[in-house]
Design a binder for these strands. Structure first.
Length: 892
DNA sequence: TCAGCGCATGGGG
DNA sequence: GCCCCATGCGCTG
């Protein structure tokens, strides 16, 4: 290549040094430069390049021309443009890419780096490695990071896009005119599906090149165009259109015949050079990190796109989550480029003694060397410490598919002290194409994240760690999506502080999906309302408000920022300002209006007002001013929080009955007014003394002795007596039923079963609980709650737990009162759990109690007032669909 | 007997 | 109904 120009974006001249034409407004992209950018060409050169005639046109007199050993065609082998236009033969000589493909002997140039293949000389390995270089496979050559989009950015809800063959056939004419090829995936021997190519076809365009991002400062027009494209299954004819459309490069598959069975075997694509971003760009561009177009859109909208479901070919659990530091850590050489490929949480099997790590199929096929035989091939993998391991990469035929495994991973896993639940990450290190295996300890990740969260004054927790405890304190290293996702959880006040990959210490792999779902549920405890309160447009962006199913959402052209809700206002001089509340002291601090705060922000981070950069500094706002700023509910919550904070320092954290009593104490004469200190279900009126209304909102408060005769204890004990009586009643009823059945065996069960039902007619109560009558006689509190169920259909009845009470078998009575206490305490916790996840803003506000630690309350208390609909909804609380944490839900 | 290999099975998406 | 994949389980050395 004779081009010696630098920066393609800065110059208006065609990058082709022998061409002095001006680039067009939207220069077309050519090959990839070492900087990761794409050469920008004038239309003419780009066309020539697209047609694969670049070397013919511009390098005809240059050295490096060789002759294809097969067809005799002259092939230029001496420039970057032609780097992938030929294949080196082991015996010497070269094949043009067409012949190599045709013969299925070798793929395009840049075969597997020797470092990756333990023994590439073996015939089988040779075959396996033929026609596919690591660089091609993983995109290391032209576009390492683009590979990922191909995998992870599939079109939406697309069925497996099949038949590589038609594409291959159709595109065959385009093969030769493309100089760079990229290995895409291994075709299965058992099938000829190829979902990769169409995806890549889409995803190529889908991904804004780093260059584009760099140029535009955002995902830009191209990204939007790509986004559109990702929603539409590409049609074959469009391929050529795309192929002539340089900006994002195009993956064009080529066909080769499997050497063993003659099936269409090794396939790949020709790919024009793609952007290979710098480390930072790579990270930010890498969809694995959540910045793919669609993902970004989801986040920015605060709601999933309709097409979101099938967006990714791979489950998100395989998306690598790397920080720049992670990447740099893997890369000992600062000049190296890390391409995160995928990650996988170790299952029990993976981490077991068998030493087999099951690889996600698509990841294996896309990122690992293609193998056509089950035996596979040895793969040299470097761990993050630089130690090299050799695994056998192989597969098993499985249900007309393949199951890929890495064998022999036990030493490595043991060396890294990994166990089920930990995450192994795979990346590629350039140059050299080394496969690097990192890991993230589940426990360490979780702990360090929480620690970081606590330490990081920005409140932006980082997560993800590749193999070391190296702190990740640079929030900028996170993609917005990652950050926001994290903050969202953080802001929930559920102390969830979980990484996306939070693991239980011991994993039943079967429960993995469930576990992940549960994490998602936690995430969903944030209502759209609240999410909107946290979302704000990026600087200088104005949100479009769209209404969806009656709810308003702010939509941003660019990724929104999630952070601490603040109150925007105008000061006396007319300057726009915002008020933010310190997480620690709850004082409000004045900040510039354009400041974006992390979700956890404290006075110490107040660099805009050094005098008030400490919690000890007085609050600038007077109480009156604050009251004017804050809506009533928020103010109340704010005060409560403050009181809570103070109170929490004086009381011990307690559980169960103690907790109940604590509330009563707080309510009876404590710091908080009773109306605030109680957890009230909306249906309960002031003065209600039922078990719900006297429940403490938090686990704080003084302990109660068993002999305590305070209001709460008496209530609880009365309730326990009720429960015991119910049990006895139930027991005797069952015995009676059994006796009756024995005496009247012909009596249909239904009659027996239905018998208790008439009880529900008492007092017009619709309860199905046959013990209802007893309950009414003994426990007016519970009765009141139960009887109130009908007007609130669809809402959670916090008191009635029929199934729970069904569980109270007489046999369990042997434990005596303490067991009952425990039962009731459990019930209380369940109720609390339901309350906290109910999504009812009333509940949330009033539930925010001293020391509760529920940051949700904080959210409510300091929600961004620009979201005007929030206030409206405070008055008319809408219950958004919320997933509840099923396992502990005793009511519903 | 045991470890490892390779395939089968079945849950979940 | 298909696919993925975690894991079970039988076979073999």
């Amino acid at each position: 290549m004779t081009s010696t120009s630098v920066a393609t974006s800065s110059s208006r001249i065609c990058f082709n040094s022998v061409c002095n034409d001006l680039k067009s407004e939207r220069p077309r992209k050519g090959w990839q430069l070492r900087t990761g950018e794409l050469a920008e060409l004038c239309d003419r050169c780009a066309s020539i390049y697209d047609e694969g005639r670049f070397c013919d046109a511009f390098h005809s007199n240059a050295s490096g021309w060789r002759t294809c050993e097969s067809c005799g065609k002259r092939v230029h082998c001496g420039c970057i443009v032609s780097a992938y236009a030929f294949a080196l033969l082991d015996a010497g000589g070269i094949l043009c890419i067409a012949c190599s493909r045709k013969n299925a002997v070798l793929g395009p140039n840049s075969s597997w780096p020797p470092s990756l293949l333990f023994n590439s000389s073996l015939p089988e390995r040779f075959k396996d490695c033929s026609a596919k270089g690591w660089s091609q496979l993983t995109g290391s050559g032209p576009a390492p990071w683009r590979q990922a989009p191909g995998l992870f950015n599939s079109s939406t809800s697309q069925p497996e896009l099949h038949s590589r063959v038609p594409y291959e056939v159709d595109l065959s004419t385009g093969i030769d005119r493309l100089n760079v090829s990229e290995r895409l995936s291994i075709p299965s021997l058992e099938k000829k599906k190829n979902e990769d190519f169409p995806e890549r076809l889409m995803n190529g365009p889908l991904k804004p090149s780093a260059h584009d991002i760099h140029e535009n400062g955002n995902t830009g027009i191209n990204c939007e165009e790509q986004h559109t494209s990702c929603l539409t299954k590409p049609q074959l004819p469009s391929l050529k259109e795309d192929s002539s459309n340089p900006p994002f490069g195009l993956a064009v598959p080529y066909t080769s015949i499997d050497e063993a069975n003659g099936q269409m075997g090794v396939s790949g694509t020709h790919l024009r050079p793609n952007p290979q971003p710098s480390l930072a760009k790579q990270f930010h561009s890498n969809p694995h990190n959540g910045l793919d177009s669609s993902g970004e859109t989801q986040m920015r909208n605060g709601r999933p796109r309709p097409d979101g479901r099938g967006r990714n070919q791979l489950f998100p659990r395989y998306w690598p989550r790397f920080t720049d530091q992670d990447l740099q850590q893997i890369s000992a050489d600062s000049n190296s480029i890390i391409t995160p490929l995928f990650e996988k949480m170790l299952s029990a099997s993976d981490a077991g003694r068998i030493g087999r790590l099951v690889l996600p199929k698509k990841c294996a096929e896309a990122y690992f060397p293609p193998i056509s035989q089950p035996e596979g091939l040895p793969l040299k993998v470097q761990d993050s410490k630089g130690k090299e391991w050799i695994f056998q990469f192989r597969f098993w035929p499985n249900n007309n598919s393949r199951m890929y495994v890495l064998e022999g991973v036990t030493p490595c896993i043991q060396n890294m002290q990994l166990q089920a639940g930990d995450v192994v990450t795979f990346s590629r290190l350039e140059p050299g194409g080394k496969l690097v295996m990192g890991f993230r300890k589940a426990s360490a990740a979780s702990a360090s994240e929480q620690e970081n969260e606590a330490k990081n004054s920005n409140g932006v927790s980082t997560h993800g760690d590749v193999s070391t405890s190296k702190p990740k304190t640079d929030p900028s290293s996170w993609s917005k999506v990652d950050k926001s996702g994290y903050i969202a959880k953080e802001a929930l006040g559920t102390k969830v502080a979980v990484p996306r990959k939070r693991k239980n210490s011991v994993l039943g792999s079967k429960s993995k999906r469930l576990r992940i779902d549960n994490e998602d549920m936690i995430e969903l405890k944030l209502t759209w309302e609240e999410a909107q309160g946290l979302l704000r447009p990026p600087p200088n962006h104005v949100a479009n408000v769209v209404s969806i199913e009656g709810f308003e959402f702010e939509e941003y052209e660019d990724a929104p920022v999630l952070g601490k809700p603040t109150i925007f206002a105008t000061d006396k001089s007319g300057e726009k300002i915002q008020w933010a509340q310190c997480e620690d002291c709850f004082k409000w601090r004045r900040l510039p209006s354009d400041v974006l705060l992390p979700s956890k922000w404290t006075c110490s981070s107040n660099s805009w007002d050094p005098e008030r950069s400490s919690c000890s500094a007085t609050q600038e706002l007077t109480a009156e001013e604050l009251e004017n700023l804050l809506p009533h509910c928020n103010l109340a919550a704010s005060k409560k929080m403050k009181a809570a904070k103070q109170e929490s320092e004086n009381v011990d954290a307690l559980e169960g009955l103690d907790t109940l009593a604590n509330l009563a104490i707080l309510g009876e004469g404590g710091v908080l007014p009773a109306s605030q200190a109680t957890t009230k279900h909306p249906r309960h009126r002031p003065g209600c003394s039922c078990i719900v209304c006297i429940q403490p909102p938090s686990g704080k408060g003084p302990k109660h002795k068993q002999t305590c005769t305070c209001n709460v204890c008496q209530t609880v004990k009365r309730r326990f007596r009720t429960l015991m009586l119910r049990r006895e009643k139930k027991q005797s009823q069952k015995e009676a039923d059994a006796t009756r059945k024995k005496q009247q065996p012909s009596l249909p069960d239904k009659v027996v079963d239905d018998e208790p039902l008439p009880c529900t007619t008492s007092a017009g109560n619709s309860s199905l609980n046959p013990e209802k009558v007893v309950s009414e006689n003994l426990d007016d509190d519970t009765n009141r709650v139960k009887s109130s169920s009908s007007p609130f259909k669809g809402q959670i009845d916090l008191n009635i737990q029929p199934e729970r009470e069904e569980e109270l078998s007489p046999g369990s009575d042997s434990g005596g009162t303490m067991r009952l206490l425990q039962d009731a305490t459990d019930k209380y916790h369940r109720q609390q759990s339901i309350l906290s996840s109910s999504g009812n803003s009333n509940i949330e506000v009033t539930q925010t109690q001293p020391g509760s630690g529920t940051e949700l309350g904080k959210i409510n208390s300091s929600i961004d007032l620009r979201a005007s609909h929030r206030d409206a909804d405070m008055d008319h609380p809408a219950i958004f669909p919320i997933k509840t944490f099923a396992p502990t839900s005793a009511t519903g």
